[in-house]
Amino acid sequence: MAIMRYAEALNAALREEMGRDPRVFMFGEDIGRYGGVFKVSRGLMDEFGEGRIRDTPISEQALTAMAVSAAMTGTRPILEIMYADFVPLCMDALVNQASVFGYLWEGQIEIPFVLRTQGGGGVGTGAQHAKSLDVFLAHIPGIKVVAPVTPADAKGMLKAAIRDPQPVIFLEHKLLYNTRGEVANEEDVLVPLGKARVAISGTDISIFASSKMVVEAEAAAKLLAKDGIGAEVIDLRTLRPLDLSAIKASIAKTHHAVVVNEGWNFCGYVSELSATIMDHCFDDLDAPVSRVAMPDMPIPYSEPLEAAVIPNASRIAEAARRTLA
């Protein structure tokens, strides 16, 4: 084990997987010589050459489509999309290509590519560089969407994503890259996709979150503990396919749920979580599910304005108290 930053954990995963499988290559804007805007691919071009680490033109649409078809024809591409806000440019390749052909041509082809991107706000990047569009992606059948929060999961899940036979969207958060944590050095430590994690165990209320919102949920749990409320924080880790049994188990214990996502509220990922809980845990619920999400408006720039829209620990704690009242 070693203490690593989140970005370093990702870098280690990329280096290990590219080293073990010549079919793996990576492309994206500024990822090569520069090492990526968030330095995730630092040093990889020197190690693996310009053929397997490619700087690309600003062509998200075609890049994503090319990742899909390259994956269909024997390679395992990793595409970095610099900001999650650019995901709408990638949509046809995901919605009309990867999703469709994974089903239509099942048995003939596999589509093992990873699309890495990062979203989230909090540092004044403004309305076009701070969004969390998790739900746009999690809506698509046949595409896995993961959003780990710890460096250990970042490494283990990126490795699992690269080895997965299906398309995987790997969602990072700009505020997580510098967080530190213990990470396995061993090459074969994978964290399975589709499995949630109990970040904090509790009996009074379940808080479901992913990515940076897990950090906020954990802070909320500490606030709630001062009031004698035992909050259970479930780090979903994978947004699709969702670990339903973990959700059911937690709600069977706490009977209360707060669902958190940094994206918009209306038709948001929180809405899906809420409906899923309603579908599968209705009789276990002792109160309506509370959603904590971004207000339904663009993200403003100025610090007090931006702070007002991004879900945080106190909003989560407040929602928990309201749910338990």
Binding site: F282, D284, D286, A287, A325
Partner: peptide, 28 residues
């Protein structure tokens, strides 16, 4: 709440006879 309803059914309790402690007025 759904959980309260299920528990009441299990125990054979009549919810009409219970009071709600929640400010929501919902029996929990």
């Amino acid at each position: 709440s759904p959980a309260a309803r299920r528990q009441a059914a299990r125990l054979g309790l009549d919810l009409r006879r219970l009071g709600a402690s929640s400010p929501s007025g919902r029996i929990k």
